[in-house]
């Protein structure tokens, strides 16, 4: 595993999360190396979104450590947190664009907060992000409600890229898209990954997206993460993994995995 050479971007050790009496994560470990695209899968309710929220520092872990770039997410002072949130971009399942702002204003929101107020710079950066995700220029002046589902996902990605983070955390980026839009999104992601040298962690249920884009993937099973390449996971005897990787949907997905 190439994670040994450099310190991993994300390093989770012994993560425990529980809701009431229910144990969601029970000693979960995860390493994500710089420059890889890592996919997280798991059954409904297995704690994928909770894991993402823990990585973002939106939820405090009940035990264990979550480190992004070597910094413990759970122990950040308010000042450190302001610097921390600039190191990653995140998209939520339904886009989570602010509905009272246009796409351009949504993109400019973090830039205004952390970087600059200069109108020319704001305009240039909004143009850049819109161009990066392949949206037509006139989209910038539209409100989220005027966009199609695929465009909302792209606009959300544009906002995630606004501060030029090296790490992207994506929650179901292709959920609800038609297969052609989803394939377009996968291509966009691979393209940005190669151009900008991004590290990407995504939660996805879309097997096509998973196999097309992710070099390594992890399955959350009974509160722990089983990770590896597609071939490694396909050889795992666990019944859920067998059902997932050898089910009818998996057989229909293309064989070649992108490294």
């Amino acid at each position: 595993m190439n994670a040994d050479a450099r310190p991993p971007v994300i390093r989770i050790r012994g993560l425990v999360n529980r809701f009431g009496g229910q144990l969601v994560h029970d000693g979960l470990d995860l390493d994500v190396a710089a420059g890889e695209i890592f996919g997280i899968v798991g059954g409904s309710g297995s704690g994928k979104s909770v894991l993402l929220r823990t990585m973002l520092g939106l939820k405090r872990a009940d035990a264990g450590t979550v480190e992004l770039y070597g910094r413990d997410v759970g122990r950040l002072s308010p000042a450190e947190r302001a610097a921390f949130v600039q190191t990653f971009g995140v998209t939520f399942q339904n886009g989570a664009l602010i509905s009272s702002l246009t796409v351009a204003e949504n993109i400019q929101l973090p830039i205004r907060e952390y970087r600059t107020q200069a109108p020319a710079a704001l305009a240039a950066l909004a143009d850049l992000c819109v161009a990066l995700v392949g949206l037509p220029p006139e989209t910038a002046e539209k409100y989220p409600a005027q966009l199609s589902g695929g465009m909302v996902k792209r606009a959300a990605l544009a906002r995630a890229l606004a501060l030029e983070p090296k790490l992207l955390l994506l929650d179901e980026p292709t959920a609800g898209l038609d297969p052609i839009s989803a394939a377009g999104f996968d291509q966009l992601l691979l393209y940005l990954h190669s151009q900008l040298g991004l590290t990407v962690v995504m939660i996805t249920h879309d097997l096509d997206t998973l196999f097309r884009t992710c070099g390594r993937m992890g399955v959350i099973l009974d509160g722990v993460m089983v990770s590896g390449t597609r071939a490694e996971l396909a050889a795992n005897p666990h019944p859920w993994i067998q059902a997932y990787f050898h089910g009818a949907r998996a057989r229909a997905a293309p064989e070649e995995a992108n490294g």
Binding site: A118, A120, A121
Partner: peptide, 13 residues
Amino acid sequence: SAPAIAQVQERLE
């Protein structure tokens, strides 16, 4: 770098 955009913009003006 990206965080220097404010200063870069001043130079560009």
